[in-house]
């Protein structure tokens, strides 16, 4: 399925000012997103941040209260059918038929995508092979494991060879091996030119797969950048010091004279961003001179967790 998708537009997904309320609860407070053709955007956010609502609007399952969105060059509210032809969706809740076999599911969805019977059969066979489900193809989906069901769900989203794929938390609840298998499938899809919007709670997943990460919190995109740039935004390496005595924590903060240091009395921990080896040596020196006993020293690169906590805390 190495289909090359030529297109006259450069943004596969383009959303501006999407809002949505359920009763008095405002779920989206103006979401802006842009996903260039052939790239993967990870929509990263905690539970209830509006990830799924955004996906449901972009896949025509839900109408926005305000704002506009185009997917594959078509307006999601006015050209729903055209959007549906261009996209595939793997929702959080498995959307395959338990009473049918894996093969029957794929043949059914291929047929509903207006493929002829023979073409549908061939397509189903190829997808089963590609998603490592050939051995289980004749079994009812009710007997599948969680990982197999997810793979079938993703395969079902691929029957129409969509140019744009939406994956709503595709690896939630999967074991590490199934997750790695799914990641490699997602990379293959990306390499063949598919545009992907993926939501996830896993920072590692976003870091591994995404060209860009949009951090969403409280119904708003609070950051939208490349993984590297987001990490840069949070700064340099982190020095974590665990002190021998909890009462030293405040004193250590004063001795270091660093307003950005994060002090945690309960964990006996001091965390600060370090700017090069000299800064590191000086910091340890200052603590030594103040007579503060350090029990454990650790230096680590900033993770997306740091980015995430910093951004979502700032928005709160």
């Amino acid at each position: 399925m190495n289909v090359i998708h030529s297109s006259s537009f450069t943004d596969a997904i383009h959303a501006r000012g999407l809002t949505k309320s359920f009763g008095s609860t405002r779920v989206l407070a103006g979401v802006d997103l842009t996903v260039p053709v052939g790239t993967l955007l990870a929509l990263l956010g905690p539970n209830g941040s509006g990830k799924t609502t955004t996906v449901r609007i972009l896949t025509t399952l839900l109408a926005p209260d305000a704002g506009t969105a185009s997917v594959g060059g078509h307006d999601v509210t006015r050209e729903g059918v055209a959007v549906r032809r261009a996209i595939g969706l793997t929702a959080q809740q498995a959307t395959v038929d338990d009473l049918l076999t894996g093969r029957e599911n794929l043949e059914l969805f291929a047929g509903l995508h207006q493929l002829g019977r023979r073409q549908a059969r061939r397509q189903a066979g190829e997808l089963l092979e590609r998603f490592h489900l050939t051995a289980a193809a004749g079994r009812r989906v009710a007997t599948y494991s969680g990982g197999m069901r997810r793979r079938l769900d993703l395969a079902a989203s691929m029957v129409s060879a969509p140019r744009i794929l939406f994956l709503d938390e595709p690896t939630t609840g999967l074991d590490p091996r199934s997750r790695a298998e799914l990641w490699s499938v997602i990379r293959e899809l990306l390499a063949s030119g598919t545009t992907i919007l993926l939501t996830t709670q896993y920072l590692e997943e976003a870091d591994q797969l995404a060209d860009r990460i949009a951090v969403i919190d409280g119904g708003r995109v609070v950051a939208d950048d490349s993984p590297a740039a987001l990490k840069r935004q949070v700064g340099s390496e982190r020095l974590m010091l665990r002190l021998a005595h909890a009462q030293d924590v405040a004193r250590a903060g004063a001795a270091l004279g660093d307003a950005g240091a994060h002090l945690d009395v309960d964990a006996r921990q001091v965390v600060l961003a370090v700017r090069g080896p000299d800064h590191l040596r000086r910091a340890l020196d200052l603590l030594h001179r103040a007579g503060i006993e350090v029990e454990h020293v650790e230096l680590r690169t900033p993770t997306l967790d740091d980015v995430f906590f910093e951004l979502t805390a700032a928005a709160a």
Binding site: T59, T60, L61, V81, R84, R85, I87, G88, L89, A91, Q93, A94, T95, V96, D97, F109, L112, H113, Q114, A156
Partner: peptide
Amino acid sequence: GGMIDRFRTLP
């Protein structure tokens, strides 16, 4: 169930 979401994204 989840099936309806699959149907709804189909043309």
